[in-house]
Simulated scan of single mutants.
Amino acid sequence: MKKLFQPYNKGTLQLKNHVVMAPMTRSRAIDNIPNALMAAYYKQRSGAGLIVTEGTSPSPEGLGYPRIPGVFSDAQIEGWKLVTEAVHEGSAKIFVQLMHTGRVAHSSNLPEGYQVVGMSDSQAAGEIYTETGMFEYSAPKALDAEGIQRIINDHVRAAENAIAAGFDGVELHGAHGYLLEQSLNPHANTRTDNYGGSIENRSRLILEIAQKASQIIGADKVGVRLSPYLTTNGMLAYEESEVHDTYVYLSQELNRLGIAYLHISNNPGITQNTHNAIRKVFTNTIIYCNGFTPETAEAMLHDGPADLVAFGRSFLANPDFMRRIEKNEPLNEPDYSTLYTPGELGYTDYPELN
């Protein structure tokens, strides 16, 4: 039997197979509250051993996109319970991805009384979707020392809320240009205090959140997503050796904390040296994601640094993705025009095999 379909057992990751459903924003959380439609969507896809939810804000100021969920209110906790119960009925595990968008946001997407924030006041280049069209990213207000502590506390409280909602753990989104990756990048983080400057200082925000969340919910219920060398959402490249050193240091320190996994957003910019170095210093589970086919995923599990492989787009249009690849059946193609629209269309209505 192919390794993709074999159970995976390490720490709290007692999974029925080696397949992860990757986090994908779908913008179906009306008023930022998870709902029954979302529960149906995730249950359809519970053939995966592990599901990582769409990016979910730990606080109102992190809601940079329209209709993304949060996990900071009682109503959101109750809404997520519908999702976690549905996924567990399908014998899958589910982690919520905690995503504070930081400067990757527009002020019109935030609740009244909140503003876009960043590690510094540098504005990201590019545009973002709003309910009234595309606009340039808003200029962020630089977080002061009190704001940094608020960010940390919000993430820790969100981790507590996630466990109360029935999640098996949380994934800290330290990738794709959002706030936690903004802290790592010297172009987005020009601070001169303990959270800026050196690699150790720029890594401090992620490490403090991971440490404090681990103390509250257990390190074995914490994962971190990283995207070394990737330049998306306004991120600017910096010196290759410094990128390498940053992510090796961060992986080493996260390993010391004993967290459950690293989730690597794979991209052509990652050197083999960096792949090897991260694998050497991080001894728990490593998940790889981005652009895999069942065949390349199988090869990665056998010959590469991955313990698990995540699929994103394949799960968009194929709620029965696991059955399709097991039976070697063709996959549905996603309708990209409905990725972020409200309602069932292009969300829960994709055909399944008889």
Rank of each mutant, 00 (worst) to 15 (best):
I30R: 04
F72R: 13
N109K: 03
G102D: 01
A92Y: 06
T25L: 05
E136P: 15
M38R: 11
G90Q: 09
T84S: 14
A36G: 04
R67D: 07
G102K: 10
Y42C: 12
R28T: 06
D144G: 15
E85D: 11
L98Y: 07
Q44A: 02
L143H: 11
L98R: 12
H100S: 09
L143I: 05
H106W: 01
L37G: 11
E112M: 04
Y65V: 01
K81R: 09
L143Y: 07
T53L: 02
D31Q: 13
L50A: 14
L37H: 14
V116N: 10
A36T: 08
D31W: 01
E61K: 14
T101E: 02
P140T: 06
I77H: 07
S107K: 15
M38P: 15
S120I: 05
S27K: 04
L37F: 01
N32M: 02
G90P: 12
E112Y: 01
Q115P: 07
Q97C: 00
S73I: 11
Q44C: 03
A40G: 14
G70T: 08
S107F: 00
A48Q: 10
S46P: 12
L110K: 13
Q123R: 15
R26V: 08
A22R: 04
G70I: 05
Y137P: 14
G113C: 05
R103K: 15
S122M: 08
I68Y: 01
G55S: 07
V116I: 03
D31P: 08
T130P: 06
D121F: 04
M24N: 13
M134A: 11
S122T: 09
G126W: 02
A48K: 03
Y42W: 09
L82A: 15
E136G: 12
V116H: 11
E61N: 11
T25D: 11
T130C: 00
A124G: 14
I30T: 08
M134I: 07
L98K: 11
E54A: 04
M24D: 06
I94P: 12
A105H: 12
R45F: 03
Y42F: 04
N35M: 07
S120C: 09
G90S: 10
P140S: 03
V117P: 15
T132R: 09
A29R: 06
A92W: 02
P60G: 09
A75F: 02
